[in-house]
Nucleic acid binder design. Structure first.
Lengths: 158, 158
DNA sequence: GGGTGTATACTCGGATACAATATGTCCGAGTGCCCCCGG
DNA sequence: CCGGGGGCACTCGGACATATTGTATCCGAGTATACACCC
């Protein structure tokens, strides 16, 4: 099981955009240089965040990316879901109903598969952890990073 | 983010082997026919379960697969980890230290990344849910399934 | 009867092929900002 | 001075290419069981 890099990228970009709030919008070129990421691909990964109403992208010569909401109103699970897609990691294909196992169908087939239920419950616990934290929490957690980010961004040249 | 089918297969096989305890060992051919799965591939997915000490495979003409331990001593997280590998879904690549962002390294770089910590915490919550349940729990949850399984298996012909 | 050889039905591990997804690049189109130029 | 036109620097969305992973099959080798055979 593997989560795409886009999640890490998206979260770091959100935190950074929160810190650089007064510099917004930040162009994709600067964001990519900021973390040394491939510019075109980073853009592709941020676009779903805009569709989800987490980021805002503005065209034009002074355009770029900024947070669509205050960081304390953006939960981490929102970012993860937007980047990674809404599908769950575990997907029940009902193999219990296939082959010999599925013969002589009993009434328990009308009820959800116990394995599927358990996996869903575990994923809910995972989501709950991420739903309880916001971008603002992540920003607060690294006060030194905030200062250094603003300093380095001020020195940034294209 | 996506979990391989092997997880569903492995869990259902464990539950079924628990129900068919007195019929053990069960050959891979019967297991594959049981759920209508590709035989060779299912075997490949069960092998790591044997390495992890969850299943036992015995060669020979009367060989096959059986639970290596009583089902109440096999947790679901063990099965998932064995099939899916020990790596975590989220992997921090420390992009905060790359590019312009990583210049002028501050003391916070010695501490773990807040994003990484949070993701790890969420995955721990997920693991905790799966660590609290065993194969025996899954067996109990479908008493009707147990009876039907034993009945269908008795009628199974090669 | 008991020991030995052989056939059989399994598993194991590696090699290989194919498909799906993740990663990365490129390009044409659209849009807001800025500046220049003409009224 | 003021308004329109054009260039610029962005984003958007799709098309495309490549790398990695997941899915699936095949084959040679090893091993335990069953059985036949021979002493």
């Amino acid at each position: 099981m593997r989560m795409g890099e886009g999640v890490e990228w998206g979260l770091h970009c959100c935190v950074t955009l929160g810190w650089l709030d007064d510099q917004a919008p930040v162009s994709i070129r600067r964001l990519a240089a900021w973390f040394d990421l491939p510019q075109e691909y980073l853009k592709k990964r941020l676009q779903p965040l805009a569709r989800a109403g987490i980021l805002t992208s503005s065209p034009g010569v002074r355009g770029g990316w900024s947070l669509a909401r205050p960081p304390e109103r953006i939960t981490v699970i929102e970012v993860v879901t937007a980047v990674e897609g809404p599908l769950e990691a575990f997907r029940c294909t009902e193999i219990r109903k296939r082959g010999v196992s599925g013969r002589d169908a009993g009434p328990e087939f009308d009820r959800p598969c116990g394995i599927s239920s358990l996996m869903r419950q575990a994923e809910l616990a995972w989501r709950r952890e991420l739903a309880g934290r916001t971008i603002a929490d992540l920003m607060e957690r690294a006060p030194a990073g905030a200062a250094r980010t603003r300093r380095n961004y001020g020195r940034m040249i294209d």
